[in-house]
Design a binder for these strands. Structure first.
Lengths: 141, 141
DNA sequence: GTACGGCTTGACGCCGACGTCAAGGCAACG
DNA sequence: CGTTGCCTTGACGTCGGCGTCAAGCCGTAC
């Protein structure tokens, strides 16, 4: 398999594969013309990388998985080092989600406040249970 | 107020303030020495920018808020354009949170699977030809 | 012959929000 | 007088993951 075929099979580009190689995440044999040659194991490694990238892993974080595959394991995540990365990523995702949720609430509160101000500071607009003073998010812009 | 003082008051750096100016988000008078001079309004603008940045707004997204302040409003979000940005950011945050939550679940499932495989592998290793727990992440198509 | 497609290496571009260094000016302090 | 400290502009560096262009080689089809 040559680089273009591998790229097509993995759903990526030749540039990306050469980049992976430059980062030491992929290795290639060469044929008589100096062209890179790959086999099914290489395809599996690239697929592993892509799968992880899609879920938000950085390239460096995929390294243990690739090395696990290279070590002969059928799954890149069967090695302890890979699972350590999984757990780290879980924590990372949790804190990111937490941060985003907090940011979302801040923005939502600010928007609600700004809309109340725009609609005028009538007293009933601030009374909870009043005749729905806010929340007309749709239309009219 | 000179640039260093403004930076200190706003909790940022002089480099950042000059950068804002280069982006047209901040304007400065000059004193006899060619040094930038600022007043309280400028401080309010910088604080508005920083507040938004902290919640995840890009610099360009802060522009309507700054212009709103410049237009004489006491709050940067009292202008319609600012509130449009708020709503856009809310949607953006929602979809980001959604994506991250989905990613989190995928990782969690993969980790659980890998751990089951590891635990089961000890038993399987003693019984070659036994049941093979294979399960792949659906990821890309 | 020559056009074409696929391969090679090398190197610069991109995005965002600055950090950091360079080289110099002006004021105050001792 | 020199040193410190704040200011000026300009320009390159950073991080990630590639995109894109350049120049050239190789084999095949027409």
């Amino acid at each position: 398999m040559r680089i273009g075929e591998l790229a097509a099979a993995a759903g990526t580009t030749t540039r990306t594969l050469r980049y992976y190689e430059s980062r030491g995440l992929l290795s290639a044999r060469r044929d008589g013309n100096g062209h890179r040659t790959y086999d099914e194991d290489d395809l599996a490694q690239v697929r592993q990388i892509r799968t992880l990238q899609d879920v938000g892993f950085g390239l460096e974080e995929t390294r243990p998985f690739v090395e696990c595959l290279r070590a002969g394991h059928a799954e890149g995540d069967s090695c302890p080092a890979s699972q350590v990365v999984y757990r780290r990523k879980l924590d990372e995702l949790d804190s990111m989600i937490e941060q985003l949720a907090a940011a979302r609430e801040k923005v939502a509160r600010q928007l609600a406040r700004a809309e109340r101000a725009r609609d005028g500071l009538a007293a009933d607009a601030l009374v909870p249970g009043g005749p729905e003073p806010v929340c007309e998010l749709g239309g009219r812009e």
